[in-house]
Design a protein around this nucleic acid. Sequence first.
RNA 1: GGCGACGUAGCCAAGUGGUAAGGCAGAGGUCUGCAAAACCUUCACCAUCGGUUCAAAUCCGAUCGUCGCCU
Length: 305
Amino acid sequence: MKQKVLVIAGPTASGKSELALRLAEQLNGEIICADSLTVYRRLAIGSAKPTTEQQQRIRHHLLDIREPDQPFTASDFRLAAAEAINDCIRRGKRPVLAGGTGLYLRSLLRGLNDAPGEDPALRAKLAERAKREGGELLLAELAQVDPDTARRLHPNNLIRIIRALEVFQCSGIPLSQFHAEHRFSDTPYDALQFCLDLPRKELYRRIDDRVDTMLANGLVAEVELLLQSGVTPVCKPLQAIGYKEVISHLRGEFDQEEMIRLIKRNTRHFAKRQLTWFRSESELQWVAYPQNSATIESAAATFFA
RNA sequence: GGCGACGUAGCCAAGUGGUAAGGCAGAGGUCUGCAAAACCUUCACCAUCGGUUCAAAUCCGAUCGUCGCCU
């Protein structure tokens, strides 16, 4: 019998955390955050991490498990989340996954292929070459060893070209072969999945409000503190929306007003990308939120009964 | 009332006779170990009417509108 998990997905600022909290309280559950930013310690305001009070109400897993300069990947998430689910179930708690990082959710619920993991040194070397020689050349090189992957990649898409090259150089097997063998066909969990659906205008309004709140809560001070304590501005989480703009502002690249404008705009773009991702997830049930949240509540109760 | 300048997409804006650059916003999409990242696609008959011309956003006239100056 597969383990049962409830999944609350949705774009940023849609109200996932709040709903997940309520569901966890109703169902005797605990929350597992599927979020690539809140795993980092010391990023609280800009990552919209659940507050201390919220964490006191319900236990949250996978928060604050890395330092800002430590790597964390979809694979790490999959392992950590699986462990957290086990932990919940062992103690008679219902696992409620809440988050907006589509790839994390997918790799947990449908598995990940067996391709080798990241090789930072090789990546750095390839990135250096890409900068010098250009994407076309690397893509041509990839076409020699993995034509299927090369065909679907744009020469500007360096990150993917580099990953495909990395996989081949580390394993001697083309990435496309790993994909063909895997096809996201694992189904390790019995998952009831919802995606919160808000009218676009309403979502954008909520994003604007949330950014204003972050600033009022001291986002700039949070970033200053991180930088003062020696966290490098180029580490991954500080390249995230909300952090990178504050850093640029602190460097004098633009004023506060422009910074706020950019954070709001970039967050809207991000939400749009999340929606595109979630639209292609066939298992997700879209629910008008908050109007139909009762539908989720009753379906979840039945699911776990 | 007179004189002058201007009127190109939601916004900024290039183009001064040969069939509408670019940026931003918006929309759509890709995504299998960096994913709040990275990448791609898409969006105009040029204020209106008339004229000149093989050909007009580009020249001429009128109208409307905006801005500035003058009375």
